[in-house]
Amino acid sequence: MRIFDPHVHMTSRTTDDYEAMAASGVRAIVEPAFWLGQPRTSVDSFVDYFNGLLGWERFRASQFGISHHCAIGLNPKEANDDRLREEVLAILPRYLAKDGVVAVGEIGFDSMTAGEEAALEAQLALALEHDLPVLVHTPHRDKLAGTRRTLEIVADSGVPPELVVVDHNNELTVAEVVESGCWAGFTIYPFTKMDEHRFVRVAEEFGTERILVNSAADWGISDPLKVSKTANAMLDAGFSDDEIDRVVWRNPVEFFGHSGRLMLDEPDADRAATFEGNSVLRGERPAG
């Protein structure tokens, strides 16, 4: 089974995790920029973090045969620091131009403040400017209201809904996200958000189109093998190999392929043709 985890914070994980992920079938990942559990106090910390996502983390992943991509953005928690917000937004264009940056993210709401809303709107505008997909986080608390407000802002931004994934859905938010035309992301966690068996029931009801499954593994209680475990739960529930491949590989390739900047080591020939512009590190076509 080939797996693309579209949301995982590898900076917080060990090489044991990389090894286990590769063994479970993970070949490609997207690491969205997020907060580190401890607020940063300087834009320079963001510069170093972004450079780490584009440099050291990509190198680490490559040691295990995993293609590492990232989403770059200012997360909602730190968007509430007024000075930092302006300074980080100012350096984003430089990073959104880079190889392997396949989305703006993760952005969105945490506590539904004016600062968060300003950062969300500014970054949707940057996504439009750089022609990049967007990875939107939905809040842990007051999730349904936060998701509705997010969808309104996305609709007003002019970014086409098929270029937006609204993440961390549950049974109560999925219908409105699917209805909006945005992609619906599901974070499979050991205790919170969503588990693999609940996801199976959601997929039975809503199908597998425009659905992404991720582990969102980070420095908290989380499990980088959750995408593989979800695929197994789908298999047990009677989903076909093709439907599972669609959810855990073809869907993320299609979504992030809009960036034209995926770097996949072992391309599926048809996919490579469909998503022209995405580079293929090993199998590049020779000139002439």
Binding site: L54, R58, I91, D99
Partner: peptide, 9 residues
């Protein structure tokens, strides 16, 4: 160099 990813560096 400062803002470069590994390939740019």
């Amino acid at each position: 160099y400062r803002h470069g990813d590994a390939n740019e560096r």
